[in-house]
């Protein structure tokens, strides 16, 4: 081969640039299209009710006011109480953090067992867990309600944590199992010869390898649990409702004028934590999804 630039190579690189720009433009249009609702929500939440009534949906706010945000956070009525989202937001945090941590840890252990300590029936158990991922929420509502009652945790936050952990294990196990099967079995063998046992190998060798898949699992579980409505509305009572249920109540129970700005602000507040998780850990998310085996 020579280093001489081929005339054809030049034109093709030009057309490549053009194509590339075309691609960027199309992608930008898509991005705008997807960002439109967020834009409307954000601007509406910063307008006064007066301005919403008179102005256009997509216009920028004339006077920015945070009143709607204040109301949404601490004054909006969810039925008879008017404390805003704050108490429910706190409920959701109390619920989501333990549920995410517990389901991730159990998933990691399960995945480790299924992928690296193949025992008789391991595949069957794994298939059954996988099947658990595809059971629709509605199907488990009644049995779960009965079970929570029997356990004495109906209507409590620990009860909700339990439900989310159970429902999440299928997914978290799947994630970790698929990650751990790519790790050569000789690693476990070497550790066994070195004298390490089941938990020692998990703790010292497998967990340190797992950052990418832990991030994926945490994001997935957090999004699922934080955004869940059905379990939240079914298994909670007055003081233990998660933020999604409260949001629904705020939006649906306003009497008189519809306070769109408050609704929008409340919706954004309810969505903020998941957004935050994506922004902070998003790059690990992509990396974790595409992460293959670990080179020895």
């Amino acid at each position: 081969m020579t280093d001489m630039p081929h005339p054809k190579a030049k034109t093709s690189s030009l057309s490549k640039t053009v194509l590339r720009w075309l691609l960027y433009i199309i992608l930008c249009l898509f991005a705008l299209y997807y960002l439109m609702p967020l834009f409307v929500m954000l601007t509406t939440s910063l307008k006064s009710l007066e301005e919403i009534r008179t102005g256009s949906l997509i216009s920028l706010p004339r006077d920015i006011t945070f009143d709607a945000w204040k109301t949404a956070w601490s004054g909006a009525c969810t039925g008879i109480q008017c404390e805003g989202l704050r108490p429910y937001f706190w409920n959701s945090i109390q619920l989501a953090i333990p549920a995410v941590l517990i389901s991730t840890l159990i998933g990691a252990l399960n995945g480790y067992v299924v992928a690296q300590w193949r025992f008789k029936g391991a595949n069957l158990i794994f298939s059954m867990m996988l099947f658990g991922c595809f059971i629709p929420f509605q199907v488990v509502l009644l049995p779960m309600a009965r079970m929570l009652g029997l356990m004495g945790v109906a209507g409590t936050i620990p009860g909700l944590i339990f439900v989310h952990v159970i429902y999440g294990i299928g997914f978290t196990t799947l994630f970790f199992r698929n990650y751990y099967v790519t790790i050569p079995h000789e690693l476990v063998k070497a550790a066994k010869v070195d004298g390490a046992g089941f938990f020692r190998i998990f703790w010292s060798i497998f967990l340190p390898l797992s950052l990418p898949i832990v991030v994926v699992t945490v994001i997935w579980q957090f999004t699922q649990i934080w955004n869940d409505f059905l379990f939240g509305v079914s298994f909670s009572q007055a003081g233990t409702q998660p933020v999604t249920v409260a949001l629904n109540n705020i939006v649906n129970s306003t009497t008189g004028v519809k306070e769109y700005n408050v609704d929008m602000a409340a919706a954004i507040i309810a969505a903020l934590p998941t957004l935050l998780v994506y922004v902070v850990a998003g790059k690990y998310f992509i990396r974790g999804l595409t992460a293959g085996s670990v080179k020895g």
Partner: peptide, 10 residues
């Protein structure tokens, strides 16, 4: 071992 099986994070 054939693959050496070194502990990757250590």
């Amino acid at each position: 071992f054939q693959s050496y099986a070194l502990y990757p994070t250590m």
